[in-house]
């Protein structure tokens, strides 16, 4: 079984990087433009290994309490009061035990018996302090909790970090990861991806869509269309029973919002430009 069987069509470079990741037990940092299928790699990998996918979506201000662990304070308080009422002696060790620990995604990932896929999505959106928290996990696969000690991974998870490159990641984080740059797919691969997502698509229109999108990506756009946008557009055109772009210029123009997501981009592709792109595609 390979990634193709679980609905992800990878190129050779990606297969090699994933192979190396499991061979060396190291996290894989995938960088690339938005919409090239970075997150989909992790989802497909979880399907391939038939294991859990644990996802941590990063954002500004993400902290240790939301990503690694937190103490269950209300439970601790209740327990303290209960012990007081029963006149039992209190020991600090009892309060700070695993019973009172709330596991967040990163801790969950290292406590699983079967290695899960841990997706740390858009790590560049998190603060630098959070990157520092990650270092121990990514190099040693362990988490140190001051009150409890060090928790080592029961099984080493497949860790995938994704980044859109909105900010420079620290060298320390990069050094702990293998690196893969995911580019927009080549026409042949994009053709196969669309074919797999929309099995009933006519191959002529599929080829035209691929040519059109590739020509569109060469334009000076703020947000070039990714694979997800191409699939959306293909679905829209298939739904309208269009088999030739040249014969359906109007529909192409009205459905272009599936590919162009900003007002400036839509203004750039005026009727003249659109006709040129259709001619290239056909």
């Amino acid at each position: 079984m390979n990634l193709n069987d679980v609905g992800y069509i990878p190129d050779k470079k990606l297969v090699t990087s994933l192979d190396l990741m499991s061979q060396l037990n190291r996290p894989l940092l995938i960088e690339g433009e938005a919409g090239v299928g970075k997150t989909a790699v992790a989802i497909a990998l979880a399907k391939l290994h038939d294991c859990n996918l644990i996802r941590l979506q990063c954002y500004e201000g993400l902290d240790i309490q939301s990503s690694i662990y937190e103490w269950n304070y209300s439970k601790q308080l209740l327990w303290i009061n209960l012990q007081k009422e029963n006149n039992n002696q209190l020991e600090l060790k009892e309060i700070f035990s695993e019973e009172f620990l709330l596991e967040r995604p990163l801790l969950q990932a290292i406590k699983e018996d079967n290695p899960p896929v841990l997706l740390i999505d858009e790590v560049d959106r998190a603060d630098e302090a959070f990157e520092a928290y990650l270092l121990e996990l990514l190099s040693e696969f362990q988490i140190s909790i001051p009150e409890l000690g060090t928790i080592k991974a029961k099984s080493i998870p497949y860790v995938i970090l994704t980044s859109n490159g909105t900010r420079e990641l620290s060298d320390a984080l990069r050094r702990r990861c293998l690196f893969h740059y995911l580019d927009y797919p080549e026409p042949e691969r994009e053709f196969s991806i669309i074919e797999q997502s929309i099995p009933n698509i006519n191959s002529q229109i599929n080829q035209q869509i691929v040519n059109f999108v590739h020509a569109l990506r060469k334009q000076d756009l703020n947000k070039p269309p990714g694979i997800a946008e191409t699939i959306d557009w293909s679905t829209a055109l298939t739904g309208l029973y269009i088999n030739d772009l040249l014969e359906a210029k109007e529909q192409v123009s009205t459905t272009l919002s599936c590919l162009l997501k900003t007002r400036e981009d839509q203004q750039k592709i005026n009727d003249g430009e659109l006709l040129k792109l259709i001619n290239i595609a056909v």
């Binding site: 050779k12 090699t16 061979q23 060396l24 293998l178 690196f179």
Partner: peptide, 27 residues
Amino acid sequence: IDSIANLEQPDEKISRHYLRTICCRNK
């Protein structure tokens, strides 16, 4: 060294991909 030594059939293309994945840090 470990990854290339583990290759059953050493091949330049795969070795190139391996080296790229291990040695590169950015785009």
